[in-house]
Design a protein around this nucleic acid. Sequence first.
DNA 1: CATGAATGAGTGTTCATTCAT
DNA 2: GATGAATGAACACTCATTCAT
Lengths: 197, 197, 197, 197
Amino acid sequence: MPRVSDEHKETRRGEIVDAARTCFARSGFDRATLQDIFAEAQLSAGAVYNYFKSKRELILAIADTRHEQERAALTAEERDPVAALKTIARRFIEAYLTGADTKRRISLMTWSEALLDDAILASVKEGVDEPRRVLKAIIQNGQRQRLLRKDIEPAAMATAMVAMLQGLVLQKLWTPSLSANAMTETCDTLIDGLRAR
Amino acid sequence: MPRVSDEHKETRRGEIVDAARTCFARSGFDRATLQDIFAEAQLSAGAVYNYFKSKRELILAIADTRHEQERAALTAEERDPVAALKTIARRFIEAYLTGADTKRRISLMTWSEALLDDAILASVKEGVDEPRRVLKAIIQNGQRQRLLRKDIEPAAMATAMVAMLQGLVLQKLWTPSLSANAMTETCDTLIDGLRAR
Amino acid sequence: MPRVSDEHKETRRGEIVDAARTCFARSGFDRATLQDIFAEAQLSAGAVYNYFKSKRELILAIADTRHEQERAALTAEERDPVAALKTIARRFIEAYLTGADTKRRISLMTWSEALLDDAILASVKEGVDEPRRVLKAIIQNGQRQRLLRKDIEPAAMATAMVAMLQGLVLQKLWTPSLSANAMTETCDTLIDGLRAR
Amino acid sequence: MPRVSDEHKETRRGEIVDAARTCFARSGFDRATLQDIFAEAQLSAGAVYNYFKSKRELILAIADTRHEQERAALTAEERDPVAALKTIARRFIEAYLTGADTKRRISLMTWSEALLDDAILASVKEGVDEPRRVLKAIIQNGQRQRLLRKDIEPAAMATAMVAMLQGLVLQKLWTPSLSANAMTETCDTLIDGLRAR
DNA sequence: CATGAATGAGTGTTCATTCAT
DNA sequence: GATGAATGAACACTCATTCAT
């Protein structure tokens, strides 16, 4: 019975988070009302409050799931540094530049919300710091293997790559017709430019 | 205080926009209240409403000045394509990765707000489309001159560069210690990678 | 206070309308504030807004109940035309020229408000058109039966009678001492004057 | 110079009152703003405030001119009582049931406003009391001359007649197509009904 | 006298949150 | 747990009025 109950609770929680994501993506964290979310989840106010004790907690829950996804997309294991960098870019692009706008809208809104809420800022930073470390390590390794140019500053290049990938999320929002394939190829081209000659 | 010169009115307007920018950068478009802005501008409600007829107009005014700046920063004239690209990157970085956080915060908030307001979206798009066209033209020109690699898709590369530069605004927000110089050099490195061999 | 019966909701709604009527009668539609109404109803702002979604809806609700009453007061079934006309007049006078000023004040305010709000105008017109039709039919019938003078234009006389009855509401407001009985008798006299000789 | 100046002041005052009447008739006393009136009069706020020291004074000025007109329309000298009554009715109908709605709208709005402002109420009462006295005297005189029925209570009949005439203002507002001629004839018919047989 | 920018108390309305049932 | 009516502080915005020029 506890198991079943817990399962049920987990399901409920997930439904609420999904409803909240839908509403937040549509109207923004501030403009979406809890009433909207109650309606979307087909649940009463009290029911939702049994799972999340404030609107902020709901926002945090969404920011956290988002950062988990981003972190996952920006990680890779590969022997060849150039291939590893390309794989990371491809994965991120597949995850974030395809499908419905919802995840891109939530990403941007979360980044913006991070300016006003330290807990969200921490979550966003976490989602960015690990990929940055991974990329930096790959680049350093590549330089040690003499496969990448020596004049690259690994940390700065890692930052530039994360910047470009996150920046692509913005571009896709401004220009929905943007092709994920074209961007993957362009990333490959840029990464190829880092090879030692 | 009648028969005030147009000059004075322009000044007043500017003061109000500045106060609004300060408040919005601090608390966000939604959470900053007009009362905050009245206090920051040391003006009464009615005085502000003589210049802007709603909170939204104030937000639009700020979004518009922001986009003017961004567009200015992303434009360049130069004979050599590689030099031109580097100049654009350097200028943008100088404009957006140095100085107080305010402009970066406003940028990110405006991008987010664009998801909810078509007028702001139009302003943001305008601020991005022209630079994209300029970058594309430079790249095409460079390919015609055989100075840049043939396997580059100009439009996609232009988008990638804008993405990276806007993405750097985010990185600087997450990591205030980020060095503008290091990023300029890294951009130079990436751009060098586009040269025809 | 959940799972409240529909009955309770209807009661609540009625309480709010009553409070609103009191406040509007006292201060007018524009000068009565919703805060006044909240206080009079001993309810919070939100509670009232659960039943009426704007001040205008509250005004409309009151205009509508008023027009129902007026329509009811101006309708009659009777075989003899002269008796029927007298009955209608008597009923209206009993309903509108006796008791507290509230209903008269609300009537006048509603008539005035109808100049500015088409929904209220429609409600007022409805409350007047049916009685006018009824009176006209009675007069036509009386003429056919040769009980009423032939030189009466039925529609115009119906209008004149409605005018006089509504005009009495004004007179009672200017002169609270006005006697309902005296007015009933005077109406009878006027109606008697319509008999065929 | 004083004469000229006074004349000019009187002209200005009249212009302002006209502008105010236009705005009030259009939007009501409460909803018309002084800004509307400044614009309609093509005058600045300060200019208007030199002639009227508050919005209420402007409303009072309009209520007063209205009541003068009404009083004038409801007065008559004639030897024959029946003819006198008919003349009064005809004059009032000519004055109030013809031409643009403005005067009718102002009348109704003033009546309503009188519920909230004792000075306006006094003005309205004055405009009604004198006609009532005049009508009463005519009726009493007619009874003495044995030209009118004995069973008429003069004061009540006078009230009924004023009620009907003011009520016609309402009817014309609800039904703009209402014919002044038809109403004049109907009034004549009703008055004829008062003759002694 | 005239101007019109400035004032600021006051308005209708919203919405996260609570809690009696 | 679930319900949803109720709360009430807070918000954007209005407008009669003032007064320095």
